[in-house]
Design a protein around this nucleic acid. Sequence first.
DNA 1: GATGTCTTGAGTAACGTTTCCTAAAGGGCG
DNA 2: CGCCCTTTAGGAAACGTTACTCAAGACATC
Lengths: 392, 392
Amino acid sequence: MTSRRCAHTAGALRERHLARSGPPPELRNPPYTRLPNDSPKGKDRMEPPATRRRITIVDVARHAQVSVTSVSKVLRNAYGASPEMQEKVRRAIDELGFRPHAGARGLRGQTYTIGVMLPDIRNPFFPEILDGITASLKDTEYQVLLGPGCNGEKEEARVTEAMLDRGMDGLVLVAPVSPRAHLDHVGTAVPTVVVGRHGTSPAYDTVTDDDMAGAAQVVAHLAGLGHRRIAHIDHHETDPTRLMEMPNAHRANGYRLAMRAHGLEEWINVVATSYTQQGGYEGTRQLLALPAADRPTAVFAGADVVAMGVLEAVAEAGLSVPDDLSVAGYDNTTFAAFGPVSLTSVDQAGREMGRNAVRLLLERIADRGRPSTKVTLSPTLVPRRSTTRPAE
Amino acid sequence: MTSRRCAHTAGALRERHLARSGPPPELRNPPYTRLPNDSPKGKDRMEPPATRRRITIVDVARHAQVSVTSVSKVLRNAYGASPEMQEKVRRAIDELGFRPHAGARGLRGQTYTIGVMLPDIRNPFFPEILDGITASLKDTEYQVLLGPGCNGEKEEARVTEAMLDRGMDGLVLVAPVSPRAHLDHVGTAVPTVVVGRHGTSPAYDTVTDDDMAGAAQVVAHLAGLGHRRIAHIDHHETDPTRLMEMPNAHRANGYRLAMRAHGLEEWINVVATSYTQQGGYEGTRQLLALPAADRPTAVFAGADVVAMGVLEAVAEAGLSVPDDLSVAGYDNTTFAAFGPVSLTSVDQAGREMGRNAVRLLLERIADRGRPSTKVTLSPTLVPRRSTTRPAE
DNA sequence: GATGTCTTGAGTAACGTTTCCTAAAGGGCG
DNA sequence: CGCCCTTTAGGAAACGTTACTCAAGACATC
């Protein structure tokens, strides 16, 4: 809110500078001057370059001897340009090296920009989704731009607002934590697809994984191996909306339902920490501190990053995986596939999610009035060496 | 090149549609209609929302009963607005929920957008740099937007050009592989900082790590432990410019020099594969295939991702780290810090690199004429359990 | 042969903001 | 008290592109 006001001071300084007619800029920083060494290691300085004016659509029109309108039509592949016209204009574009200015285009039409918000770049699952998105957009005029990692509501709001301000044509929000009202606000302002969050809205389209089914597969796998005391590490959540919509809640529910379905309700044990390595570590410490009769023989971590923490805690306790404890994760990240780790996990088909998100987004950009849609994908269990029969 | 021409067809369709006056859009997709189920799992549809006009600076001016110019001045903290004026305008901005349109601003002044290009989102080192960048920009009006992962020259060119087209105020390019000419082109068009690539240019500023020093620290560490047969896994490179400028080349050189300095030149052994997990895996297979007398007792992988491949190959060969082979990486990623892995690595202080990049960028945005600068940071060795004395 | 319709091209007014310029107040100084 | 300078406010012209509107010619229809 307040940051909106405090514009960068460069502009103010320049204007004041002109008004007071102080020393011209070129005298303040003479070229080839070496400044005192204020960097940790060292500095080298070189002469500055010169910049030149950008080619515009007017230049192209003049060079091709046609009207500006015609150039614009060719640029947009719009109706009403004869083949000869197209040829002439394209030659002029190539000869001048013209590239349309996205900001100016956005003022009237589209910016040909798709904004993607990822909650955490460090989680190796999200690049999969991103790959699906970029691959689907590769042959279009659209360009993908990412928001920087956002951990909280405030950061998310800043990033989404910034994308709206920049006139993006469509947004893909991956696992957003913002309240529904904010998502609706965004979806109303611009075509939006929310990925990895359950719950639907008329304002945006949704792509999710069937998290309940994924959790059920993990429990079935572990129960099939003979485990009974199967614990689950969940992300702690109190907000009622997020409790309904966030994937972790669905995984925990799927775990509970599947445990009952396998007649293991008495062994249901959910530790709520957080979907981080630290959360997995702490959750496991709690589980290992239980009396032997209650201690789980298998842990289903809600995410692979959580499983990393589990493995760390297990190693620290002098135990080994899977002999002393079977461990399963969720997301099938490269970490899970890493040989020495070999973590049983659930593959969410991130690429497929990204592809679907783009498809829905382009559909909605083409027809903003169409009813909103939810696509649900099925996950697949990937068994690896971190799960085996229980010791007893 | 050709993709520049083939605009998305939506505009063309709409224009043709109007010209031919076919059925209006609302009849093509009647609301509440359920389409056939063509998604992998299932679909739900809901009614669409309505969108409303964006608040503009004109609305603010009218509401505050002042001129548009005055509002603009307040927005930019520019000279010539009295305190009362500022107060009036800010109240109007808050009451209306006005946010300036970045694209329109970019047409005359700045877009308040900084573009960051990361070569590979999956490499856990780059988020560190990004954190440094975003942290430094948190209290400014600037917003960071990332290009999606680019693996090659072509992708890089597409992303950088897209950022130029969008009128970004500054660019941070992390470890770009583009030829120098392209970097100069970009740097001439917009303030630019290149991170993690040696070699300087008058057109842009540079922030690098002292890779030679980092490699020397690794060799010194291993030699100090008693190792003599220390091998290095490098990224294969033939392009002469990149051979001079890319960090991997500097690390390899640092390795060679340090080996000589420790009187170990006869054991210099550089395997050139690639800076990927696969590259580390293949390189290690080659090294392990050597006759016992030549086989290294320690491997210095040029990056932590490479070390991941090394560990995988070692485990697959039935050997163990560090008893049979000491392994060191580079970048000090979270993977290296992960307890069960505990990889000796070199910390590049990514946050510090990001911070310096932003500082240089803002300096240059404020004064485009200032001479270009290079900042070099010193890396730190982080010894962990993956390196120990050699067996013999 | 007159009247539409379709096609192609061009002129012009937006879009939302900043920058340049000018005008009107205030205030110190001779 | 008149003059100049400083401060404050506003009008108008950019910025680069697209959407709307219109005109002229080709061609088919009655």
